[in-house]
């Protein structure tokens, strides 16, 4: 196992990032079908993206991390979550979501499709 004390809180930060985009999604879906300001959802999305970037940076600085194992697992997980995100995106388009709302939800799905495989890869690699 990689030394536990030297690992950044990737899982915890990832969960907060996911919670932020989930909150944005709840905010948008709770106002259907009326018009709603996108600003709160955009702010949550930006914060989520920042946490994703911070997570990558923090993990990149870990010495002796099992990167091969991480990428072995994360790449397949990413493929699976890309498919899932694509299905959800299709549901949005089928339900006539358009404009800024669709852009925010699409970017949220992108963060989701990146962050979950990252957490899966990290969990496997840390215990390798």
């Amino acid at each position: 196992m990689t030394e536990e004390t030297s690992l950044p809180p990737v899982t915890q930060v990832g969960m907060v990032s996911l919670a932020l985009i989930v909150a944005g999604g709840i905010y948008l879906s709770s106002h259907i079908p009326g018009d709603v300001s996108l600003m709160p959802a955009v702010i949550l999305l930006v914060l989520s993206a920042l946490l994703l970037a911070l997570n990558f940076l923090a993990l990149a600085r870990v010495k002796n991390f099992r990167w091969k194992r991480f990428f072995d697992v994360a790449k397949w997980s990413f493929l699976a979550y890309l498919v899932i995100a694509g299905l959800i995106e299709y549901a949005f388009v089928r339900n006539d979501v358009t404009g800024g709302t669709l852009v925010v939800l699409t970017l949220s799905l992108l963060i989701f499709a990146i962050h979950v495989p990252m957490m899966i890869g990290f969990t496997v690699a840390r215990y390798d």
Partner: peptide
């Protein structure tokens, strides 16, 4: 539930 499942449950399952 989704955040807990995606962040903790599924990574543990795969690991």
């Amino acid at each position: 539930m989704a955040v807990i499942a995606l962040g903790l449950l599924e990574p543990a399952n795969i690991a």
